[in-house]
Each structure stands twice: as structure tokens, then as C-alpha cells.
Design a protein around this nucleic acid. Structure first.
Lengths: 158, 158
DNA sequence: CATGAAACGCTAATGCC
DNA sequence: GGCATTAGCGTTTCATG
């Protein structure tokens, strides 16, 4: 893995701007930061090549897609679960269309699964069918999300 | 709030593609979906105007920024906390540079705060200084994040 | 609601400082 | 590393079916 080179002030500024609006044109970015468009082009390219910027993504209003309810489901696995079954479980969960994010954590829970669904009935269906039914799952704990704020889009990692 | 109009297959396809790569050119999108560039332009514009796509954002590798450690901190508020102090608390938390996401939830916890920091010492500092020190905070529960997967970037809401 | 054509603007590469 | 230039490409508008 390439190590992190320290970023200067301009880079931080660029990242802040592209976090907010990933479709700012190169020309706009250059004007905002105070460099020439060609310079900005090289800088953004460098940030991407160095892996600081890992991608650009549209953010989607799940409610407009009919999924007006979001929840965070904490999952605790059975104590004796094998590595392979845990891996298989997490990979299966990721692919479900209700799932927005999955956090594999250490602590009270083993996983946190962020979902968006149509109704509270769907929350229950999701938990029962995809979580509780699994051999590796010991228990789940569901929290409805009332309010959601995002400062940045974090890159995936493992 | 404008209601959700049902999206057709092409719209879903567009959303999937722009979720993955928000900087696909209009021409590429058009070719992928099988319509003319001018048609694609109108469709994407419509998705934005209808509020389905709420924005585009660069995703950033926090580790490359020197923040190689992520955690989810569950926060429980004091039972007697007033609405205003809760609101003030949540708004203050949002602005901290370590914070990636904040979920206001119902259940065991009242908030879930997703943070990225340099070291485990920073996790502790964050919790102690910004959470435990607050009058409204009753308790916190920190979980280190080992693995993170994202299927979509959800729009903020309240 | 989709399309092709055309004008415009931006990107991205090059060579120079 | 920053910059100006420029060729090529993508976007965006509009009249038309």
C-alpha cells in the first residue's frame, strides 16, 4: 500500500469542495482554490492516483425511491461461529438491495447494518429473513433512524 | 414534499451506474443504457430536479489522510435532557472534523456517531472531550470498525 | 418523450518556466 | 510544481418527429 504523503492546504481545500460537490468542473475548482485550470487538473489527477480520492458517487434520496424508512441493525454472532461462515454471512448481507452500509465492528455487536426500506413491516421481514434465520446470528437489535447527517463519504476498506 | 413518482427501468439503471461512478460522462451513460446522449441528459436532469439524486460526492480514503482508525460511538442521553440541548448537541457533533456520519436513532442509543481518527488515543480523546463532557450525555459505547462496505450514498434527512 | 445537429464550454495533454 | 495554449471531446440547447 502506498503510504500517505502529507497533503498541503490546497489539497485539503480541493477535497472539501469535491466532498460537497463531486461534479464541480475543473475550471470552477481552479477558480475557488486560486490556481490555473491546468494546475488544478494535475492536482485532482494526483489525488486520484495516490488513492486519496477513491471515487465519485451520486447520493440518492431513498425516500423518493419509496424507501422512506431507515434503520440500523446491530447483529451479534454466535460465539462458536467459524471464520468462513462469518465471511459468507457478511458478503451475503452486503448484496441485499435494502442494505446501504455494513460495518464490521468489535464491541457489543459484531455487525452494524444500515438499511432503507418501505415500511416497518419490511424492517421486520429483513431482520427475520436475512438475519435471525442465519445459523451464525445469535441476536439482533434494531434502531430506527430519525435523522441522518453526513460530512463525508468514506472509502470502503477491510 | 414532492411525492415519489415511480421510476422506470432506465432510471433505476442510471441510478445504479451513477451510484458506482458519479463522474461517468453523459455520453458513457447514454451508451450503457442505450439511449441518445441528449435523451440521457434530460433524464439525469429530471432525476436531479425531482430530488432523487441529491448530489455528487467524492469518496475519500481516510487512511490516506492519516486517519487510519474508524469507530462507531453509540451515545445515550440523560433522561431529562431538553429538546433544545439535544438539538444543540447534535449540531455541534456534526461539525467536528473527526465525524463522518451521525445517526439520530431510537432504541438503546440515541445517537450513533461514525468517526475517523489517527489513533486509539484520538478515539478516547474524542469521546471524553466531545461526548462524555457534555451535560446531556449519559453514556457512550465505542466500537472499533474493522471493515466497512457501502452500497449506496444515502441523502441526508431529518 | 426521444432524437440529431450545432454551438459552446471543458478537459486533458504538451511544452515551457 | 505551476502555468498558458490548444486540440479534441462532452455537454447542452433546440427544433423536429
Amino acid at each position: 500500500m502506498t503510504n500517505d504523503l502529507r497533503l498541503d492546504e490546497a489539497d485539503s481545500h480541493i477535497l472539501a469542495l469535491l466532498s460537497r460537490d463531486g461534479r464541480m468542473t475543473n475550471a470552477e475548482l481552479a477558480a475557488a482554490v486560486g490556481v490555473a485550470p491546468s494546475t488544478m487538473h494535475a492536482r485532482v489527477k494526483s489525488l486520484i492516483e495516490r488513492g486519496v480520492i477513491t471515487g465519485f458517487h451520486a447520493s440518492i434520496d431513498q425516500a423518493r425511491l419509496g424507501k422512506g424508512l431507515q434503520a440500523m441493525v446491530g447483529v451479534t454472532l454466535r460465539a462458536g461461529s467459524r471464520q468462513e461462515s462469518i465471511l459468507a454471512f457478511s458478503q451475503a448481507i452486503r448484496r441485499l438491495p435494502q442494505v446501504i452500509q455494513v460495518f464490521f465492528v468489535g464491541g457489543t455487536d459484531d455487525f452494524l447494518v444500515h438499511i432503507a426500506v418501505e415500511s416497518s413491516a419490511d424492517v421486520r421481514t429483513f431482520v427475520v429473513e436475512h438475519l435471525s434465520a442465519q445459523q451464525t446470528v445469535a441476536s439482533t437489535r434494531t434502531s430506527i433512524i430519525f435523522d441522518y447527517h453526513r460530512n463525508a463519504v468514506a472509502a470502503e476498506f477491510e
